[in-house]
Design a protein around this nucleic acid. Structure first.
Length: 792
DNA sequence: GAGTTTGAAACT
DNA sequence: CAGTTTCAAACTC
């Protein structure tokens, strides 16, 4: 069924402008006249500006300091990865603006940046913050670059670092390159050495350090023939500036080339994937990322990734796909050369690899064991929070908001320590997919890939294509051998290691598969198809499973969403806010829920009414003794509700309610929780909406709902899991509690209302949920009548 | 390490 | 939808 609201609401939520209005002639006319773009266009613009793209309106002349800084990464990579032939002079701002109209110049603009600053021959003049740059050399404000200065110039061109040029001498011996390190300098593509260098204020010390740096960098760049290209460009740019072209002669290191190489190596080097991508937390994402992203890592920690990105033209034009080479320093994996924790790397996000919804909640939920893994959870939470802070300043997503309760070290801290779990990080990245704006989507492939290269906790070998057959090799990877290894290391390290023999790791039996991660070399599985080389098969199988059960990959442990007063009233004191429970409950017969056979126990949550266990003695919380009466009551209520709904409504509600059965089943009861569980819940809660295939199927819509311009959706505090549970076909056990339906009809309870919202927006393509939109509309109308403001 | 137990997942 | 089978993890020895 068609659900127009599903598509519309995210837009209207972010703007108050209805589609009808947008489509009106007047609106079109106004849009054409006004810089104010249509809502959709604005949304994309906002995304860019709020992430790593410059936020400045696309105006074109005078460079703005901040803007300039923000466009740093663009400047860097585009300059050399994409040689420009364009003669159009594109200002930094437009270029940062990612104006589709300027798209043609988008890529080469960095070069043009230089040129644009060259009219007077002084690149620095344009590339540095006017407020922070002092050019004392000559009245023209133009520096005659020496070797060192040329290098500096390059630095500034590529890093956007705020360099204060105090003096310039022709021989370069006395060249003073004083740089003012700005907070965002950490985002530049600079090794720590360079940062330190730039920060050096002492001239002599600086020179020495700088020379060392140049030497070091030149060594690093030796292998990069592409540096020549850089030189060429540099020469062109400098010549274009009309100031000097003598770099090669004056550079102490044979030429300034060498000093440029280190810089260029991050940009010009292409497709030297040294380690490859072993596992992707996001199967769907992998396709995109694998096919489009090329991750390079040089000998140091500088990395380069070539990623595609789409530019959504203002005015709903056709998206333009570009490829951007993004070079950055990986602070996550400090190399020997770079152990600085002073400067983070620049998470340059440019590619909307909007692969939809990954189902990796289990990965988080399951692998993040309560006790030992709370650290991981914190890390992940911090990961997201800091990520958001870093990339989406001033913007707060729902998941990050909730994660904010977690003590937040910075993302850098997390990553710098290397003390994170590879798979969990994968899962987390996957879980954040869709939460990030389109132009940040590459984050999912980026750090993931990076994580792959580190995998500090999972001592797993990279699995290349050849590994597909490894399991056939008796001695090397015998199941038994691996089994032992897996057994000894799996859980404590949080790494999924399966031991599948017959399922080919393509069923939920396989923990890896269920967790949404590929099997790794240390798995003891046989005939494993859960490997990157079989991504098609994996995806296909996944889809099949999801068809059978859309929540198959959803987290098994869900937050107790009965925080709402209504539920509290219903459940009385038994209700514990922010608690967790198993989604479907266990079915234990003999283990008495005291062993890990029990999923509840394994997840360290108590059993609840939703469980069908017998003789429950779960130490985390027994199933309520009064289960039967309650179930009976629910049954009755369900029938009641159904009857009333059928009577009162057009059937939509009835259907909707039934869809929510699993929800209520899962939310019916909770007790005994731990903080860590709450943490887990949060992770789950915010991940789950993006874990649904349904969402994934929305296709481009996923970006919409994931975008930052769907705040109502994302900020909704209700458990997204609800929404997806609602669509679960497996509704074996329970009918929804009455209050649930009451909420539906009354629309006065925020919790569920939020859930509806989410469902509506996140799963627009889900036929069963379509009616829900209507319900929501009604509810909203009711809300309006009641003047109930439910902004999250 | 081999075998058994267990319960979820898958199948009929 | 219920019963059965399959499967792999958890567990025991």
């Amino acid at each position: 069924m068609d659900s127009p609201e599903g598509d519309r609401i995210p837009v209207s939520a972010s703007t108050a402008s209805s589609p009808a209005v947008q489509e009106s002639p007047f609106f079109s006319f106004a849009s054409s006249l006004s810089p104010i773009k249509s809502v959709k266009a604005a949304r994309y613009t906002t995304r860019f500006s709020e992430t790593s793209f410059p936020s400045t309106p696309s105006v074109f002349k005078s460079p703005h300091p901040d803007l300039q800084r923000e466009t740093t990464f663009l400047k860097r990579d585009e300059t050399f990865s994409l040689p420009s032939e364009t003669e159009n002079e594109i200002s930094l701002h437009t270029y940062g603006q990612v104006d589709p109209q300027l798209n043609s110049g988008l890529i080469p603009c960095s070069q043009k940046e230089v040129q644009s600053g060259s009219p007077s021959g002084c690149v620095d003049q344009y590339l540095t913050d006017p407020a922070e740059v002092e050019i004392k050399d000559d009245a023209k404000g133009c520096v005659k670059p020496t070797a060192a200065d040329s290098s500096q110039l390059l630095q500034r061109v590529f890093t956007g670092s705020e360099v204060t040029t105090e003096k310039d001498n022709a021989d370069g011996s006395n060249a003073v390159v004083r740089a003012q390190t700005l907070p965002d300098l950490a985002e530049k593509n600079w090794p720590s050495e360079s940062l330190n260098l730039i920060q050096t204020s002492d001239e002599k010390a600086h020179d020495e350090t700088y020379d060392e740096y140049l030497e070091f960098m030149s060594k690093r760049a030796e292998d990069h023939a592409e540096s020549n290209m850089l030189l060429e460009h540099l020469g062109e740019d400098l010549n274009a500036g009309g100031q000097h072209s003598e770099c090669d002669d004056s550079c102490p290191h044979k030429s300034q080339t060498e000093s440029c190489r280190p810089i260029s190596e991050g940009f010009a080097e292409v497709a030297h994937s040294q380690r490859g991508i072993r596992r992707h937390l996001q199967f769907e994402a992998e396709r995109a990322s694998c096919s489009s992203a090329t991750l390079n890592q040089n000998s140091s920690s500088n990395m380069e990734i070539s990623v595609p990105y789409n530019i959504q033209p203002q005015g709903s034009g056709q998206a333009i796909s570009c490829t951007k080479t993004v070079a950055f320093q990986m602070p996550f994996f400090p190399s020997d050369k770079d152990k600085s924790t002073e400067h983070g790397g620049n998470m340059v996000i440019s590619a909307p690899i909007q692969s939809g919804i990954g189902l990796h909640l289990n990965s988080i939920g399951r692998s993040v064991s309560v006790d030992s893994d709370i650290t991981v959870s914190k890390k992940l939470g911090s990961y997201s929070s800091s990520l958001e802070e870093k990339l989406v300043p001033g913007r707060s997503h729902n998941f990050a908001e909730d994660l904010s309760v977690i003590s937040v070290p910075t993302i850098k801290e997390i990553l710098d320590t290397g003390n994170y779990n590879h798979q969990e990080a994968q899962a987390f990245v996957a879980s954040t997919e869709g939460l990030l704006p389109d132009n940040m989507a590459s984050f999912h492939s980026l750090p993931l890939s990076c994580l792959d290269q580190q995998a500090p906790l999972c001592e797993e070998k990279m699995t290349g294509p050849q590994d597909a057959d490894k399991f056939e090799e008796p001695g090397q990877n015998s199941p038994k051998r691996n089994r032992k290894r897996a057994k000894s290391t799996s859980e404590t390290e949080g790494c999924k290691r399966c031991n599948c023999k017959r399922s080919r790791c393509l069923k939920l039996y396989c923990e890896c598969f269920a967790a949404g991660v590929y099997c790794i070399d240390s798995c003891a599985c046989e005939n494993c198809f859960n490997k990157p080389e079989y991504v098609d098969k994996v995806l296909e199988t996944r889809e099949q499973i999801e068809l059978r059960n859309p929540l198959a990959f959803a987290p098994k442990i869900v937050k107790h969403a009965n925080d709402s007063p209504a539920y509290a009233v219903e459940e009385g004191n038994r209700t514990t806010p922010s608690s967790a429970r198993h989604k479907r409950g266990c079915n234990c017969k003999k283990s008495k829920c005291l062993k890990k056979y029990c999923e509840c126990y394994q997840s360290k949550v108590g059993c609840s009414d939703g469980c069908r266990c017998e003789g429950c003695n779960n130490s985390f919380g027994k199933k309520p003794e009064s289960k039967f009466p309650k179930m009976e009551r629910w049954k009755n209520l369900s029938h009641e509700k159904q009857d009333s709904a059928e009577t009162v409504n057009d059937g939509i509600k009835t259907r909707t309610r039934n869809q929510f059965s699993p929800i209520w089943e899962g939310l019916a009861d909770v007790s005994h929780i731990t903080p860590s569980l709450q943490l887990k819940d949060r992770l789950h809660e915010h991940s789950s909406p993006f874990v649904s295939k349904a969402s994934h199927e929305v296709g481009s819509g996923s970006s919409d709902m994931a975008g930052i311009d769907t705040p109502d959706l994302l900020k909704d505090n209700s458990s997204p899991t609800e929404g997806f549970q609602a669509s679960s076909p497996k509704q074996k056990r329970v009918s929804p509690p009455q209050h649930g339906s009451q909420r539906l009809s009354s629309g006065t309870t925020q919790g569920l209302r939020s859930g509806r919202k989410f469902i509506l927006q996140a799963v627009p393509s889900f036929p069963p949920l379509t009616p829900y939109s209507n319900t929501k509309i009604k509810i909203n109308q009711s809300d309006n009548q009641d003047s109930v403001h439910h902004d999250q």
